[in-house]
Design a protein around this nucleic acid. Structure first.
Length: 255
DNA sequence: CTTAATGTTCCCCA
DNA sequence: TTGGGGAACATTAA
């Protein structure tokens, strides 16, 4: 799904449309989207919206909605319903659509905070991040993708951060020098913030709540760049598979 | 027809 | 208990 920067952008672009609004009706067009029913949700007020890792939490006057976008989920303000619209929230002013081509996404109605994931990469102290890596006996890319390790990083930013920090994706996390671990933390913070500033990466079909694409994909150095020259040294970018995900890196820069 | 895609979970094996 | 690997979920695009 959208990763941290995309979720953050969706929250920012959707917030002005839904903050303080009342949900008149909620309609689920696909059984897979939710266990909740429209009548469970109708009538509640929206207190606010926030990001939790790469997920989105919509606080209600009673309970909250946990929106998990997975690979192709979208939240759209005042869009036109189409063939992939899976849920419609009619508000007292405007409407919100949940579109999702692949239907991996979901919207859950919770009465308490969701189960806890790892720390937010933009908030964790660099030394704490390094320490978490040090006690992890797994490939560093696997750690980055594990939402219980840190919440919000996905396949794009994992590959880009490992390139920026010059770390091979299959390096054991507990074998990284403290210096490398800190470089990785710094690369992650830099990339996530830069991406947020550019509205996220639109590589597949990501758009924000207004239907606008981000532009951070133009800054990608290795993600989906197999065979293209490394911007640092010219060596062709290599693609391997790690944790069942396409993994892109420079075999010369990322020893 | 085959492969891969911003993700997670479940199941089996060591 | 931890970690690795594969399948599954549903749909599109190259």
């Amino acid at each position: 799904m959208p990763e941290l920067p995309e979720a953050e952008t969706i929250v920012r672009t959707l917030s002005p449309h839904i903050q303080g609004r009342r949900i008149l009706t909620a309609t689920f067009l696909s059984r897979r989207v939710s266990d909740a029913t429209g009548s469970d949700i109708a009538g509640r007020h929206i207190a606010g919206i926030r990001r939790y890792g790469k997920q989105i939490l919509i606080d209600l006057d009673r309970g909250l909605l946990l929106v998990d976008l997975r690979m192709t989920g979208k939240l759209l303000a005042n869009g036109q319903p189409g063939p992939y619209t899976r849920a419609i929230f009619q508000l007292d002013r405007g409407a919100v659509l949940f579109d999702d081509i692949r239907q991996f996404g979901s919207i859950q109605l919770l009465d308490v905070e969701p189960t806890k994931l790892g720390p937010d990469p933009l908030e964790i102290h660099p030394a704490k991040f390094a320490e978490r890596l040090r006690v992890r006996n797994t490939q560093v890319k696997c750690a980055l993708l594990d939402q219980k390790f840190v919440r919000g990083i996905g396949n794009i930013y994992a590959d880009e951060a490992l390139f920026l920090a010059r770390i091979h994706p299959t390096t054991r996390a507990n074998q990284l020098s403290k210096q490398s671990a800190l470089a990785l933390h710094s690369a992650i913070v830099k990339l996530l913030n830069e991406s947020i500033a550019l509205g996220g990466s639109s590589v597949s079909d990501y758009v924000d709540a207004s239907g606008s694409k981000g532009s951070f994909q133009l800054q990608h150095k290795v993600y989906r760049k197999e065979g293209k020259p490394c911007p640092q040294c010219g060596e062709p970018i290599t693609r391997i598979v790690v944790a069942q995900r396409g993994t892109h890196f420079c075999p010369r820069c990322q020893s």
